[in-house]
Amino acid sequence: MLYRITVRNADGEKLEIVVEMSEDEVRALAEELRKAGYEVRVEPIPEGEEP
């Protein structure tokens, strides 16, 4: 499935990426980023919607 991941650092800089991963993989990635001090938001992209 496609997911949009938005990551912000302490300075407020934002990075937005689209990935194709399983829900478990995305959850693990988000958890690791949060542990590293980043603010993370994950949104699933519905099938048929443009990323």
Rank of each mutant, 00 (worst) to 15 (best):
M21Q: 02
E25L: 09
R4H: 03
P46I: 13
I45L: 12
D24P: 12
I17D: 01
A28T: 10
I5K: 00
M21G: 05
E13C: 12
P51V: 07
V40T: 02
I5W: 01
R4I: 03
V42G: 00
L33F: 14
E39K: 10
R4Y: 05
R41Y: 06
E39G: 05
R27G: 09
V42H: 03
V7M: 15
A36E: 03
Y38C: 02
E43Y: 12
G37D: 01
A10I: 06
L29S: 01
K14S: 11
E50T: 13
E20C: 03
E25H: 08
G48P: 12
P46N: 11
K14C: 03
R41Q: 09
T6M: 13
R8Q: 10
D24H: 10
R4P: 00
E32Y: 15
E43D: 09
R41A: 09
M1I: 06
E49F: 12
N9S: 10
K35A: 10
I45A: 04
R27V: 07
L33Q: 01
R4Q: 02
V42T: 04
E49A: 12
E50W: 09
E23D: 07
V42K: 00
R27A: 07
I17L: 09
E49G: 12
P46T: 13
E23M: 11
L15Y: 14
E23N: 08
N9L: 08
L2T: 06
I5L: 12
E25C: 04
Y3S: 00
M21A: 06
A28I: 09
E31V: 14
I45Y: 10
E32K: 15
R8A: 09
I17Y: 10
A30R: 04
T6Y: 15
P44A: 09
E39C: 08
E47M: 15
M21C: 03
E49I: 14
R27C: 10
A36Y: 13
V18I: 09
V18E: 06
R27Q: 07
E23W: 05
E50C: 07
P44Y: 07
M21W: 05
L15P: 02
L33P: 00
S22V: 07
A36K: 14
Y38G: 02
I45W: 12
N9Y: 07
E32D: 08
D24M: 11
V26F: 02
S22L: 14
E23P: 10
V7T: 09
A28V: 12
V18Q: 06
L29H: 04
K35S: 06
G48T: 14
V26S: 03
L15V: 09
K14F: 12
E20F: 15
Y38V: 03
L33M: 08
P44E: 08
V7D: 00
P51W: 01
